[in-house]
Amino acid sequence: MKRAKIKSIPYEEFKDNETYEKLVEELNAGGANVIVKKLDDLIDWGRSNSLWPLTFATSCCGIEFMAVCAARYDIARFGFEVTRNSPRQADVILVCGTITTKMAPVLRCLYDQMADPKYVVAIGGCSISGGPFNKSYHVLNGVDKIIPVDVYVPGCPPRPESFLYGMMQLQRIVKVENFFGTTNRKEKDPYKVEAEIKEEHIYNQEEQA
C-alpha cells in the first residue's frame, strides 16, 4: 500500500492511521496506470509542499495562526507561508475561529470560490463543534455542517505545534491523491444534502400556499 512519507515524523507516530489507510484504500480501489501514478506522485510532491492557505481568521484561533506564521514556529519551513487573501488563489482554507450563523453563508461562498483541488482544515474547538459556545443561538456547531472537512485540529486554541501537525496530516492526504483522470473527494458535501432538504421545504411551502 502506498504511504506518504513525511520527513522527520515516522509513519507510526502519526495518530489515526486507520482512517488514513481507509482513505488510501478508497483512492486506490480502481487500480491505476503505472505511468500515470508516477506522474501523480511527482505532482503531489510539489503540491503537498506548497499548500497555500487562505487567510481566514474570525477570532482567537486566528491569533495563534499568526503566531505560527511568525518567526518562532515559522510555517514557511513546510511551504505553507504563502497566505492568500483571495480564495481564488488558495489551496486550503484554515477555518480559525468561531463560525456564527451569520458568517456561515460567507464561509460557504468562500469555499465555493476556491479552485479544486481544495482542502479544509477545521482549527480549534469552535470550528469543530462550536467549542465553548456550542449552546449559543448564533454559533454554528461545527463547520462540517456546511463544508466538507479534511483535517480537524482540536484545541482552544490549538498549540502551534498542533497546527503544524494538522498541516502534515493534510500533506499526507495530498501525497496519496490521484491527480489525473479521477476526482478524489470522497466526503459527502454537507451543503448539498442540506440544499436538498431546503428545496423540499420550499416546495412544501409553495404547495401549501
Binding site: T100, K102, M103, K135, S136, H138
Partner: peptide
C-alpha cells in the same frame, strides 16, 4: 455581528464560575 457569539445570553444559563471561561474569548 459576524462573530456575535451570544456570550451574554449563554452566560445567563451558566453558573458564575462557568461564565468566567467566556471572558477570555
Amino acid at each position: 455581528g459576524y462573530i456575535h457569539r451570544g456570550v451574554e445570553k449563554i452566560s445567563e444559563k451558566m453558573t458564575y464560575p462557568q461564565t468566567l471561561a467566556l471572558t477570555d474569548r
